[in-house]
Design a protein around this nucleic acid. Structure first.
Lengths: 191, 191
DNA sequence: ACCTGAACACCGTTCAAGT
DNA sequence: ACCTGAACACCGTTCAAGT
């Protein structure tokens, strides 16, 4: 039967979860789907674009939270982090796809955060920069968290994972609040 | 004559500047140095470790600024950004090496920023997280800036680069101030 | 329109063997 | 101690040719 984009993305996601980003190659994916490597290039221009589609699939649970601007920022940050932690190397994948501008969901997240920053009173020229600063934090924090998590999971007597998880939630929120307080301080002085 | 670590790093840096990170391979580097690929593995455990050494070479101009904590943070951020912009794909290289914990200079920068955060009054448990948040911003911002810069440089009628450069300096400083203000707000409440 | 087969031009890493 | 040569096990991408 015919190969569809969504089948390719689904197979790629399962390879990601089972073997990690380093072992997610075009050739291996083709083998899994029982097609020739070239077939993938009918559906995707290149590997980066395919990974962008996988990133957007990972980010599918991220929504459009409502409320005042600080709680919207908080909710969005938590939703992105949770989505990344749900897949092996999810943070690394999304981080790379964001840098390559291949994730439409991350572009939308930046849009939502830009609106929140504008609502907070950040000058229009700096609202998107403010949004990106929040994204850099979420991605940086989660890449780090996930690499430690996965390193612990492989070997090493893990010292009660649940306690550390609570700790990481608290630490993550600390950074989000630091950013929100920074935004508050950088509002336009309107006399 | 014998191959030394510093020769390898120097040759790698010049390949980086001339052809970019994607074309900096172990095999190409060996060819440039007129040794067999295996020779590099006598001096470096793997490619990541070698790239970490190159990252530290790129970061060599970063110093240990003095002054009060906000100006130390500001100076450090500017120094790191300037160093990254001085080499092709410098930001991407250092970002990857930092994530892989292969750059001792970036580890030192985090140390300096942690001290600054502690001096600002951030609780000890969150001082390092605060420091890493600043680093995520500097790396994220500069990766983005450099990729746009290099995209413009290759083809496209660049609309007077100098004006945009001033603009980028101002934008960078805005983010740094946002973080400093966030740190100020997250000081321990000592009555 | 969609895919195969085969090729092109590479990779990182290892390791017996040499000097 | 330091390096070579050769191998192992792969890559991403392209494209004429097929259906």
């Amino acid at each position: 039967m015919q190969l569809h984009k969504r089948d390719v993305v689904a197979a790629a996601t399962s390879l990601l979860d089972d073997y990690g980003l380093a072992d997610l190659s075009m050739r291996r994916l083709a083998r899994e789907l029982q097609v020739s490597p070239g077939a993938l290039y009918w559906h995707f221009a290149n590997k980066q674009q395919l990974l962008g589609a996988v990133a957007d699939h990972v980010l599918a649970p991220v929504g459009r939270p409502s409320g005042d601007w600080p709680s919207r920022i908080g909710a969005l940050c938590r939703q992105v982090r949770d989505a990344l932690l749900s897949h092996t190397d999810g943070a690394e994948l999304v981080s790379a796809s964001f840098a390559a501008a291949e994730s439409t969901v991350m572009a939308d997240v930046v849009g939502q955060l830009t609106d929140a920053a504008a609502e907070a009173g950040v000058p229009a020229t700096n609202a998107e920069l403010t949004a990106r600063t929040v994204v850099y934090y979420v991605l940086g924090f989660t890449v780090d968290e996930q690499s430690r998590r996965q390193w612990d999971a492989a070997g090493a007597d893990l010292p009660d994972a649940s306690l550390l998880t609570d700790d990481q939630d608290t630490r993550f929120d600390f950074g989000v609040r630091l950013l929100i307080d920074g935004i508050l301080a950088r509002r336009e002085q309107r006399v």
